[in-house]
């Protein structure tokens, strides 16, 4: 067997293992619940950090939609943030509806949630694998980074950090770096779970 063949087999095996572990997450009510809660929670925090979600209890309910929303939605407002096409005031929260921001946030939120759900399985089913809380921590770091990617300078101002060209360049790469780290974490954690174990 050549090196490339072994690599192909390993890659395929890794993919199958990861897929099986993710399936295990969704076969259990508790881990599925964790995924749902974390996805919604993370998405909310993500949208709040990028400025698309805010508390505005004094503003009456209202809806505004921009002209030509399909073209507008792909206009960038930051390294990885995009224009809102509608404004929704509910009487309590204000939502700037940016479909691309929501899609990015949802992708990252699901990755974070599945990562942490797998870590949860490792804790409640220690016989299934040998991993500890470190995997969850690994997953949470890029999640934290990527959540700040769309508004780097504002975050820096909030924390009183003086920006440099290097730091701003780093901000522009946080989202792809964050997603890559989440995927690596996912594969790493999934590989340590025995997905054939009977679910609870």
């Amino acid at each position: 067997m050549s090196t490339s063949d072994r690599f192909d087999v390993d890659l395929r095996g890794r993919f199958d293992t990861t897929w099986a572990a993710i399936a295990l997450v969704f076969r259990r009510f508790d881990s599925t619940g964790i995924v749902l809660v974390l996805t919604v929670g993370y998405l909310g925090v993500f949208l709040w950090i990028v400025g698309d979600l805010s508390i505005r209890p004094a503003v009456p309910a209202n809806v505004l939609i921009v002209d030509d929303p399909v073209a507008r939605m792909f206009d960038r407002t930051g390294p990885a943030s995009f224009e809102a096409i509608a404004l929704l005031d509910t009487g309590f929260v204000r939502v700037l509806v940016s479909p691309v921001n929501v899609a990015i946030g949802l992708l990252v939120a699901v990755l974070v949630a599945v990562n942490l759900a797998l870590t949860y399985l490792a804790v409640v089913q220690p016989a299934a694998c040998g991993i500890g809380a470190g995997s969850g921590l690994l997953a949470s770091l890029p999640a934290l980074f990527s959540g700040t990617v769309c508004c780097g300078p504002v975050i820096l101002i909030a924390f009183g950090i003086q920006a440099s060209a290097l730091l701003l360049t780093l901000f522009a790469w946080l989202l792809p770096i964050g997603i890559a780290m989440l995927l690596v974490s996912l594969v790493s954690v999934a590989g340590k779970i025995d997905a054939t174990e009977p679910s609870v």
Partner: peptide, 24 residues
């Protein structure tokens, strides 16, 4: 454009707060 008019990503002037009033 739709923006969070009424909010200010840097702070506020009335009264002064955030970036507009600190030393950063």
């Amino acid at each position: 454009f739709v923006r969070d008019y009424g909010g200010d990503p840097y702070g506020g002037y009335n009264p002064p707060s955030g970036y507009y009033s600190n030393d950063n």
